[in-house]
Write a protein that binds this DNA or RNA. Sequence first.
DNA 1: ATGTAAATGATACCACGTCTCAATAAGCAT
DNA 2: ATGCTTATTGAGACGTGGTATCATTTACAT
Lengths: 147, 147
Amino acid sequence: MTISPRLERLRDAGYKLTTARATVLGVIESHEGHMTSAEILDEVSKRDASIGRASVFRTLDLLTRLAIIRPTYTSGSATPNYVLMPDGHHHHIVCVQCHQTIEFHDCGLAVLSERLEEEFGVKLTGHLLEFYGVCEACSEAGVIDEE
Amino acid sequence: MTISPRLERLRDAGYKLTTARATVLGVIESHEGHMTSAEILDEVSKRDASIGRASVFRTLDLLTRLAIIRPTYTSGSATPNYVLMPDGHHHHIVCVQCHQTIEFHDCGLAVLSERLEEEFGVKLTGHLLEFYGVCEACSEAGVIDEE
DNA sequence: ATGTAAATGATACCACGTCTCAATAAGCAT
DNA sequence: ATGCTTATTGAGACGTGGTATCATTTACAT
């Protein structure tokens, strides 16, 4: 069996390679982009009904700790969206009106990252950059917040 | 009564200026930094026990839509932390081991922000930049993840 | 093969956050 | 000030996402 490089990271960190973990990661990887926990739960049990809810959440926690995925803002106080961090980083714009997200790729943050590592003595593995604003469609519709 | 500039933003956007809203914002403003919804709930009812839970959550949603605060997910799938966005932006480093956060201030993202506005036709009001890594203390303790 | 500790699944459980709805208060016009 | 209109509120019931517990299973080392 070939092992996804991300699963290897998991094993290298001292965690066991289980089917539950592989399935959860597989689901997230195959479904590039944002997923809510409900969607993940759903897809996982479609692929392997024997996997319990608890394990899915435990795996999400674990993947988060390993900076493989990241929970991120959705709507106000609702449940998070999980986002894959392809090379340890992820960037998007989210529209505060309609919650649509636009992904973009170059951020030029490598320099800042290094500076911070020195300044604070930390070892950085990734980052998430979210911009907030109003998308084209919404600003044309002109809902609230026009001054 | 003098009105906080943030409350004014709220009113200018067409929302009424109520005690519930003022209290919630007041709590968040006075407690600079990160707060969970539980902490906010607690502080609010300490200041004014007549304010209901529902209104607090509604206000959090509203403030989020207005980009005055922002929920961020420091730990895995737990409840979000609400963060004030002083000038529309906020930056921190979060330790994936102990969940401690370190705030920093200059990010040099203004340039990128403008470029994105042009490229995607959006109007950006703020951003959140999170770095993930291992803090000094944790990497000395050397828990998991040493290669 | 066998042992052992980590991980799992089932389920009961809890808390966060939402919904509903009648009561209230903000803001405006007079 | 006064009254009108409508957004907003508080109370509480409700749903659901996520967690704790624990006996069972599984991964991995020897």
